[in-house]
């Protein structure tokens, strides 16, 4: 048999390596998210995820969660992307306090905010009524997708739906005074939690920081109105759904500036008769180059939101 020339056999070796690599990855992973509770105010802790897309590398830890330690108990705000995350979050809480979890809030229906629920007492799982309904209907599809995106990290993750319906307004839990602010726009129902003692605002996915907002179920008009409302709110620091904690309203303004540009771009494109493929080919302006994943999120947003802009530009009822 003729000997293969060097470049080709090198290529073959490379391909063999590529074929074997996925297996070695799975073997190496210890499925430890290495969660670290960071104290950002008296009794207020956050776990900050990476500003990346879901992947088998990060196991879905691309989201923020947090907890408040009161005199009698702990309030959890969002439980992360998987059962493992929830369990490791529970362990992280136990390293800070022996107090029981008395309230576990799911800020909205997206799976990276409630799939850790299995690790928390079922009777503490709570959300706004529209969020509860949406989770009950849509969770199976979300879970299937999260298994595809994050791989084996998701092992044994199942739906533990929130049952306790929250109402907007004041709520005392575990010795913490909360103000629950019911908004929408990122999804049909987005719950913002203000810790009254420290002025810490948990803004859910209405606010992104240093990462382009995701829009799979967005209503941009409503979202922009919710951001206006949040900027009126007084607070000392804001915990975004994704990205680092900020001491001021800068991430609110940044999220608004991006969404406003996106909304305008979609409407103008449809008004000018551009096809979706032409919209996808447009670059994201340099002014948003500081936002992680901006070109990916722009493209996702176009595929999801442009049909509605087209419907309006073509003056159609449905």
């Amino acid at each position: 048999m003729k000997r293969l020339p060097m470049p080709t056999s090198g290529l073959l070796r490379l391909m063999l390596l590529m074929l074997l690599t996925p297996f070695s990855f799975a073997g190496a992973a210890d499925f430890d998210y290495r969660l670290e509770s960071r104290r950002i105010a008296d009794g207020v802790y956050v776990l900050i995820g990476r500003t990346e897309d879901f992947s088998p590398d990060n196991g879905g830890n691309v989201v923020n969660s947090g907890f408040l330690v009161g005199a009698q108990g702990v309030v959890v705000i969002d439980t992360g992307p998987s059962r493992r995350y929830g369990e490791q979050m529970r362990a992280a809480i136990a390293r800070i306090t022996p107090l029981p979890v008395v309230l576990t809030i799911n800020s909205h229906k997206h799976p990276d905010h409630f799939l850790g629920n299995q690790a928390f007492p079922p009777e503490t799982l709570a959300a706004l009524p529209e969020t509860i309904r949406a989770i009950e209907v849509q969770a199976p599809a979300f879970i299937e997708r999260m298994y595809k995106l994050n791989g084996a990290w998701m092992g044994a993750t199942e739906l533990a739906a929130p049952r306790r319906a929250l109402a907007p307004g004041r709520l005392e839990a575990g010795g913490r005074e909360l103000e629950l602010i019911a908004l929408d726009g990122h999804t049909e129902s987005d719950l913002v939690v203000l810790d009254r003692a420290t002025g810490t605002l948990f803004a859910a996915d209405l606010v992104f920081n240093g990462r382009a907002p995701t829009t799979p179920h967005a209503n941009l008009k409503h979202w922009l109105a919710s951001l206006d409302r949040l900027e009126q709110q007084s607070f000392t620091q804001v915990v975004p759904g994704h990205g680092p904690v900020a001491p001021d309203a800068a991430p609110i303004r940044e999220t608004r500036r991006y969404l406003h540009w996106l909304d305008q771009t979609l409407r103008e494109g449809a008004e000018q008769g551009l096809d979706m493929s032409e919209m996808l080919a447009q670059p994201v302006p340099d002014t948003f180059s500081g936002l992680a994943l901006s070109s990916q999120e722009y493209r996702r947003s176009v595929t999801r939101l442009y049909p509605e802009a087209e419907r309006i530009a073509l003056d159609m009822r449905r």
Binding site: Q272, G273, D275, E310, R311, A313, L314, D315, M316, R317, R318
Partner: peptide
């Protein structure tokens, strides 16, 4: 009730061509 409803619109393009976009329920 909206089946087969058509939305359509024409645009003059910068190169002098005419663009038609068409959407059907």
């Amino acid at each position: 009730q909206d089946l087969n409803q058509v939305g359509s619109r024409l645009w003059q393009r910068p190169d002098g061509s005419l663009r038609l976009r068409l959407r059907i329920v």
